[in-house]
Simulated scan of single mutants.
Amino acid sequence: MVKVNGEAIYDTRPWEIFGEGPAEVIEGHLSEHKNKDNTEKDIRFTTNGDTLYATVLDWPTEEIQIRTLDQDKLNIKDISLLGSSEAITWAQSEQGVSIQAPKVKVGKYAFVFKITTN
Results as ranks from 00 to 15, higher is better:
39 T>P: 01
59 W>N: 12
67 R>E: 09
20 E>V: 01
27 E>W: 10
29 H>Y: 14
24 E>F: 05
48 N>C: 14
46 T>M: 10
30 L>F: 10
44 R>C: 13
49 G>R: 06
69 L>K: 08
71 Q>R: 11
30 L>Y: 09
17 I>N: 08
9 I>L: 11
37 D>E: 06
54 A>T: 03
31 S>E: 15
70 D>Q: 10
11 D>E: 11
60 P>M: 00
45 F>P: 03
15 W>A: 15
10 Y>H: 15
24 E>D: 15
72 D>R: 12
21 G>I: 04
53 Y>T: 05
64 I>Q: 05
63 E>I: 00
61 T>A: 10
11 D>V: 09
28 G>I: 08
55 T>F: 01
64 I>E: 07
45 F>R: 05
29 H>M: 13
40 E>S: 15
52 L>Y: 04
54 A>R: 07
51 T>A: 13
60 P>S: 00
65 Q>G: 05
51 T>D: 13
50 D>I: 04
57 L>Y: 04
45 F>L: 06
51 T>Y: 09
67 R>K: 09
29 H>V: 12
11 D>S: 13
34 K>N: 02
58 D>L: 04
46 T>C: 11
20 E>D: 08
40 E>H: 13
41 K>S: 15
75 N>V: 02
16 E>W: 05
29 H>D: 15
72 D>K: 08
34 K>S: 01
15 W>T: 14
50 D>C: 09
16 E>F: 12
17 I>V: 13
59 W>E: 02
23 A>M: 00
59 W>H: 01
44 R>S: 14
31 S>D: 09
11 D>M: 07
49 G>F: 06
28 G>Y: 09
20 E>M: 02
26 I>W: 10
35 N>F: 03
72 D>P: 01
77 K>N: 12
